[in-house]
Write a protein that binds this DNA or RNA. Structure first.
Lengths: 198, 198
DNA sequence: CGGCATTATTAAACAGTGTTCAATAATAAT
DNA sequence: ATTATTATTGAACACTGTTTAATAATGCCG
C-alpha cells in the first residue's frame, strides 16, 4: 500500500494530471482511463476518485492544464513577434491544435453533465483566453470594449470552426485551401467588414 | 431466434438506424450502445455486427441519416422563404442543431479511425450540404465558383463555430449575444468585407 | 423433392470501462 | 496511548465493444 505521505494532495493531483495529459497526448482519449492513470502513478482507481470525485472532475483538471498551456503558448508568441496580434493569435491557435491535437480535441469532445457545472477557476481560464483576442481587437474597433467582445467571440468561433474542420481532417471533402490561408482570408475579409462598418 | 426472413437486409439496416437515432435523440450518446439498439429491435448484438461491421460503421449510417435530415430541413426552409438564402441557411443550421442537439453533437464527437475511411456515399452527402451554401453565395461573388467555394467554407466554419460555442452552452462564459445575433453579425460583417474586396 | 452449402442469428465469453464500498492501513487529535 | 479521521486498497457491479463457435434458416442444385 502506498504510504499516504508519499505525496501530499496537491502533489498527487499534479502527478495524476501529468500522467493523464501524457496518456491523452500519446494515445488519444481512447488510451485514457482511470485504471491506466492509476497504473502509471502507482496508485489505485479509488485514490483518483477520492481526489477528483469522478472522471469528469479529473478531465476538467486535465483540460485546465491544456488551457494553461495554450495561454502560455499564445502569450509567448505574442511577445516574440512584431506582426499584428490577431494574426499571431489565430495562427497560434491552429498551431497549438496541430501540435497537441489529441488534447485539444478532447477539450471539445468533453461534455459537462448537468450536475457537474463548470467551476469558477475553469471559467476564469477561458475568460483569460478570450481576453487575448478582445485586447488584440480593441484598436480595430475604436477601443469600444463591447464591440471588441462581440467581434472577438465571432472571430474566435470562425477560427475554431476552421480548425475543427481542417485539423480533424474528417470533413476535408472539398478541395479546400490550407487552413492557414482560410484563416488569413477570414481575418482579412471580416476585418475589412468591421472597418467598413465603423 | 428471429427468423432471418423477418426483415430483409435493407429493412434491418433501416430498423437499426432508426432505433439508434431514437436512442441518441432521446438519451444522447451515452444512451446509445450496441446492446441497447439490439434490445430495441429484437435482435442481438451479433446481428448488428454482421450488418454494420463495427460500431463505427453503424454510427456512420446514423450520421448519414442526420445529414439527410439536415439537408431536407434546410432545403424546405429555402423553398418556403423569400429572405436571402444565406440567412436561411445559417439560421436553419442553428435551428437544426438546437432541435436535434444530441444527434448534431454526435456528428462531431465522432472520430473516424485511421482504418475506417469515410465512404464515398457519406462524402457525397457532405458535398451536397456544402453546395447549398456555395450556391447561395454565388450572386455575392460575381458568380465566381472558386470564390464561392472558399467563402462558403469559411462562412460555414464560422457559423458552425458559433453554434458549437453557444448551443453546447459550455463555453458561454462571456455575457455574449444570443447565437442568432452573432450569426447576423458574422454574415453582415463578413459579406461587407466580401463586397469591399470585389 | 432431398441434401448440401451458405448465410443469419444467437448465446456466451473476453477484456476493458466508470463507479461504489467495505475493510484496512496510516495519520492526526485528544 | 487511545480514539477519531482520513487515505488507500481490492474486490465487486453493471456496463461497454468485439469475437467466436454453435445453430437455425435459407438458397441452390441435382
Amino acid at each position: 500500500m502506498a504510504r499516504r505521505s508519499d505525496h501530499s494532495r496537491p502533489e498527487l493531483t499534479e502527478l495524476a494530471v501529468k500522467a493523464g495529459v501524457e496518456l491523452i497526448e500519446k494515445k488519444g482519449l481512447s488510451g485514457f482511463s482511470a485504471r491506466a492513470v492509476a497504473r502509471k502513478i502507482g496508485y489505485t482507481v479509488g485514490t483518483l476518485y477520492h481526489v477528483f470525485g469522478d472522471m469528469d472532475g479529473f478531465m476538467l483538471h486535465i483540460h485546465g492544464q491544456t488551457l494553461d498551456d495554450l495561454y502560455a503558448f499564445l502569450t509567448k508568441k505574442l511577445e516574440r513577434s512584431k506582426k499584428p496580434s490577431l494574426d499571431i493569435l489565430a495562427h497560434g491557435y491552429l498551431d497549438f491544435a496541430r501540435a497537441h491535437f489529441n488534447r485539444w480535441d478532447a477539450l471539445f469532445t468533453f461534455r459537462t453533465t448537468a450536475s457537474n457545472e463548470i467551476p469558477p477557476w475553469y471559467a476564469a481560464k477561458l475568460r483569460g483566453l478570450f481576453l487575448l483576442t478582445e485586447t488584440a481587437l480593441m484598436p480595430h474597433v475604436g477601443n469600444n470594449e463591447q464591440a471588441a467582445q462581440k467581434h472577438a467571440r465571432i472571430l474566435w468561433s470562425g477560427i475554431h470552426g476552421i480548425c475543427v474542420l481542417s485539423v480533424s481532417g474528417k470533413l476535408d471533402i472539398v478541395n479546400a485551401d490550407k487552413a492557414e490561408k482560410q484563416i488569413d482570408m477570414l481575418l482579412e475579409t471580416y476585418m475589412a467588414g468591421v472597418e467598413k462598418q465603423l
